[in-house]
C-alpha cells in the first residue's frame, strides 16, 4: 500500500490469477479438507481480488499502471484453456471441469506479465522479485509431487504434473536472466 508505483505490474496477469482461484476453489461450497486449506484458499482469493481492485480503482496506483504496454488479451489464454478443460479432464462435472480449467490457466497466467517485463526496459526490483518468487514457489510443487508419488499410494496426476511442469518451463528464461543479474550484481534487464 505504501509503494504506489505499479509500473511493470501486469493487471492482466493479476486478473487471470483472480479467475484461476475463483474457478479452482468452488469446492469450498461443497467439501471441507482442513482449516489450513480453507484459510489459504481465502487468502489467495482475497489477495488476488484486492490487487485487481487496487490497480483498477485506487487513484495513486491506477495512475502509475503501465496500461499502454500491458496489451496481452485475456481471451487468447482463457478460451484455449476452457476448450482444453472441456476435452481433457478426469470427470465431466461442472466443478471438475472448472477445476481443470484453473489448472491449465494458471500454467500460462504469467505470460502477460513476462511480455510486459520484456517491453519495460527498466525492471523494478519489486516486480523482478515478485516474478522470481512466484515462479520459485510453483517449482517447489514439483518436489512435493515427487515426494508424494513415493509416499502416497495411487498418487498419479498427469493433468497437474504436466501443467505445473509447463508453468515452471515458462519461467526458465526469466530465471536465467534474474539469477545472472543477481550473480553479477547488476540491474535486471531482459533482451528485447
Amino acid at each position: 500500500r505504501k509503494n504506489t508505483n505499479k509500473r511493470g505490474v501486469s493487471l492482466k496477469t493479476q486478473e487471470l490469477y483472480a479467475l484461476v482461484f475463483a474457478t479452482r476453489y468452488l469446492d469450498m461450497f461443497t467439501d471441507f479438507i482442513s482449516l489450513y486449506n480453507t484459510v489459504m484458499k481465502l487468502i489467495f482469493l482475497s489477495s488476488s481480488f484486492s490487487i485487481v481492485w487496487y490497480m483498477r480503482r485506487h487513484k495513486l496506483v491506477r495512475r502509475s499502471y503501465d496500461k499502454d504496454h500491458d496489451t496481452f488479451r485475456h481471451q487468447f489464454l482463457v478460451l484455449p484453456c476452457l476448450i482444453l478443460a472441456l476435452l481433457i479432464h478426469e470427470q465431466f462435472t461442472f466443478k471438475e471441469v472448472m477445476w481443470t480449467f484453473s489448472i491449465y490457466l494458471e500454467a500460462v497466467a504469467i505470460l502477460p506479465q513476462l511480455v510486459l517485463l520484456q517491453r519495460t526496459r527498466n525492471i523494478d526490483n519489486l516486480t523482478g522479485q515478485y516474478v522470481f518468487f512466484l515462479g520459485a514457489y510453483r517449482s517447489l510443487y514439483i518436489l512435493n509431487w515427487i515426494y508424494r508419488y513415493f509416499t502416497e499410494p495411487h498418487y498419479v496426476h498427469w493433468i497437474t504434473w504436466i501443467s505445473g511442469f509447463v508453468q515452471t518451463l515458462l519461467y526458465a528464461d526469466f530465471f536465467y536472466y534474474y539469477l545472472n543479474s543477481w550473480k553479477n550484481n547488476v540491474k535486471l534487464t531482459l533482451p528485447a
Binding site: 469446492d27 467439501d31 479438507i33 486449506n37 484458499k41 466443478k95 497437474t160
Partner: peptide, 10 residues
C-alpha cells in the same frame, strides 16, 4: 474417488 484425493493442493 473422493474430491479431496488430489484437490487438496492449492
Amino acid at each position: 474417488r473422493e474430491w479431496d484425493d488430489y484437490h487438496d493442493e492449492l
